Simulated assay, not measured.
Amino acid sequence: MKHPGPLLTLLAGLLLGLLTLTLDATAGTSRASSSYQEKPPSPTPTSSTASPAPAASSPSPSRIADASYAGRTDDDSSSVAVSVRGGRAIAYFCDGRSRESWLKGPVLADGSMRLTGGHGAALNGTLRDGVRIRGTVDLDGGHYAFTAPRAVKGSGLYRATATVRGAKVEGGWIVLADGRQVGIVDREGTPSSAPRIDPETGAVTVDGQPLTATPALP
């Protein structure tokens, strides 16, 4: 009986080779699977634009108290009175003889004011500490610095308008804290010194006719 030695050896070698190839293929597949990692999803982009901050609200302008002010120019030649009501002002410049001007305009939150009148007249002033107005008046080529303290009872700015003996009459009065009065009555464009008024009642007599002067308001 012949021994199948060489044949068995050949078959065993073939089987071993096939087994080796199978194991190598399996290992390669496993290595490939383990080396692959799924890329994580990209994070959802977020907006980098921040919401704008709310705009700061503008501060409310401080309210200037209603009051009247009356004083003299630095050269003591004339008087100036200012009445402030509701953020507006009316002023009167008067030398008590022939030079006068009515002016008006707004008062700003910081107390400053630029009032204007006829023929280019201008008053530039500032309310200081709520007790006085310091400023200047420009009128007919003249420049007058003045200080007008806050008016006390009975002092301030007064005005009267009427028709007397067929003529239009307009009077302006500045009553100072010490009782002095400065005023002009204009009769159809002709100015002259005004008679005294009663500060308690405003009563005054112009050309024989009784009138009532009232506080001038803006």
Rank of each mutant, 00 (worst) to 15 (best):
D75G: 03
F93N: 00
G87T: 10
L139N: 03
A81K: 01
I90R: 05
S79L: 13
Y92P: 00
S68H: 08
R114V: 13
N124T: 13
L115S: 06
V137T: 03
A122H: 04
G135I: 01
G141S: 13
R128A: 15
I133H: 01
G125E: 03
S83A: 14
W102K: 10
K104V: 08
G86P: 01
R128Q: 15
S83K: 02
D110T: 11
G105N: 07
S79M: 12
A122L: 13
V131I: 14
L127G: 07
G142V: 06
K104W: 13
S112I: 06
D110L: 12
G86S: 15
R72F: 03
S77P: 00
T73E: 05
A121L: 04
M113Q: 07
V131S: 15
G86C: 09
L115I: 06
G111M: 11
G142N: 11
Y92E: 04
G135S: 12
T126C: 10
S112W: 05
A81Q: 08
L139W: 02
G135L: 07
R88L: 11
G87K: 10
V80L: 07
R72P: 00
I90K: 04
D74P: 00
K104N: 14
G120F: 09
R88K: 14
A70I: 11
P106R: 09
R72H: 06
G125P: 02
S98V: 14
P106H: 08
R134C: 12
V131T: 15
G86T: 09
A109S: 15
A91C: 08
T73P: 02
G120D: 13
A109Y: 10
A121V: 00
T136Q: 14
T73I: 05
G111Q: 12
G125I: 01
M113P: 00
G87S: 11
L127T: 07
G125C: 10
S98W: 10
W102S: 12
I90T: 11
L108G: 09
G111C: 14
G135E: 07
D129M: 12
S101Y: 01
D138L: 10
P106T: 07
S98H: 13
S98I: 13
G141N: 11
N124W: 05
R128G: 09
R85N: 08
I90H: 03
R132E: 14
G87Q: 08
D75Q: 06
N124D: 15
A89G: 05
A89W: 00
R134Q: 14
V137S: 04
G87R: 11
P106V: 08
R132W: 09
R88W: 06
L108M: 13
L139S: 01
C94F: 02
G86M: 11
D110M: 12
G117P: 05
T126Y: 09
V84P: 00
D140F: 13
V107T: 07
D95A: 01
R128T: 14
S79T: 12
Y92V: 04
G87N: 11
G120S: 15
E100M: 00
V82A: 02
G86V: 06
L127P: 07
R97V: 15
V82L: 07
S77R: 08
L127H: 06
S112V: 08
L108C: 10
D76G: 08
R88Q: 14
V82R: 02
D74G: 09
R99P: 01
L139T: 05
K104F: 09
V137F: 01
F93K: 00
G96N: 05
S101N: 07
S77T: 09
V82M: 06
S98D: 15
A81R: 01
T136D: 10
